[in-house]
């Protein structure tokens, strides 16, 4: 690697002569070694899933959750350094709760992504800190209905709060991925971590931008994708963890919750079956690792 030995890669916030911040790129390396995380934005909700690689037989099965709740209607999953992921979640929770304190309404997924993008970017600016060693996927459901203002006592104004425009549609699913550089994009399907290449290829097959995939099918697809992404890393055991957020009429009523055990098991069963059927038509070979640069 050309960066090594030049001296420009020893401190955060320092540009190399060709305009790169190597410490951020190295942080991305930490992400690329982590278990695969994905998120799928369905028409009536969002699914988050993660491949938890089992590092020791002594770990308590089913414990050690990696997908966290940020606010009632929002969750996050990350790949990379697990303690950094917890830091991310802790800050995201603070942002969500301070938003509620100021605006008396839940934060939207887009706003949270923006706040967290800003926060992570700040950790690329100073030599006194290091960038986050995680890429985080945030999924949420922004209420499509007029919500009561937090703490309101009466019925409130008939037009509702927040200066809404009549006839315009509000709310819906939100899915964002935030990288160590602080850059973030909205996604139909997002993947990060070790198996991201395979996962991305699988996500693209789902034609998510058409907006036809239901949440229930999304859960099953997510399980399949994690199993497929793990196939390149077969020597290690893993646990699948999945959460979801449905619309207000759906199974979680707009809340971020764990996928129920029976549905999770059903999805895992289908995923294993799909994988066995796939074994003969092995087409994906490892693509060269893409250059993840800190984009402008």
């Amino acid at each position: 690697m050309t960066s090594i030995g030049t001296g420009y890669d020893l401190s955060n916030s320092v540009f190399s002569p060709d305009g790169r911040n190597f410490q951020v790129e190295y942080a991305v390396k930490a992400v690329e070694n982590g278990g695969t995380s994905i998120g799928i934005r369905c028409k009536d909700g969002v699914v988050l899933a993660v491949e938890k690689v089992i590092t020791s037989k002594l770990l308590k099965p089913g414990a050690n959750k990696r997908i966290a709740t940020i606010d009632r209607h929002m969750g996050a999953v990350s790949s990379g350094l697990v303690p950094d992921g917890r830091h991310f979640v802790s800050r995201a929770r603070d942002e969500a709760s301070s938003w509620r304190k100021v605006y008396k309404t839940p934060i939207t997924t887009a706003d949270l992504a923006s706040r967290m993008g800003g926060y992570m970017q700040a950790y690329t600016l100073y030599s006194s800190v290091r960038p986050f060693g995680v890429t985080a996927i945030v999924g949420g459901w922004d209420s499509e209905l007029e919500l009561p203002v937090d703490g309101q006592v009466g019925k409130g104004p008939s037009i509702g709060s927040g200066g809404k425009v009549e006839g315009k549609k509000y709310g819906g699913p939100g899915l964002y991925m935030i990288e160590p550089s602080g850059i973030y994009w909205g996604y139909y399907g997002a993947a990060t971590g070790k198996g991201r290449q395979t996962a991305k290829a699988e996500l693209e097959k789902l034609n998510l931008s058409e907006g036809n995939l239901s949440l229930l099918d999304g859960v099953k697809e997510a399980a399949k994708i994690i199993y497929a992404a793990h196939a390149d890393n077969k020597d290690k055991d893993f646990e699948l963890e999945m959460t979801w957020i449905s619309n207000l009429d759906g199974p979680t009523k707009g809340r971020h919750e764990e996928v129920p055990k029976d549905l999770l098991e059903e999805a895992e069963r289908l995923a294993k079956k799909a994988l066995e059927g796939d074994d003969d038509d092995e087409e994906t070979t490892d693509k060269p690792a893409e250059e993840d640069k800190m984009e402008e």
């Binding site: 009632r72 509620r100 304190k101 703490g151």
Partner: peptide, 15 residues
């Protein structure tokens, strides 16, 4: 009420 709401949200962080 807002205080209790935020307390409830915090309690629901862990499942």
């Amino acid at each position: 009420d807002r205080l209790l709401n935020s307390l409830d949200t915090e309690e629901a962080y862990s499942t």
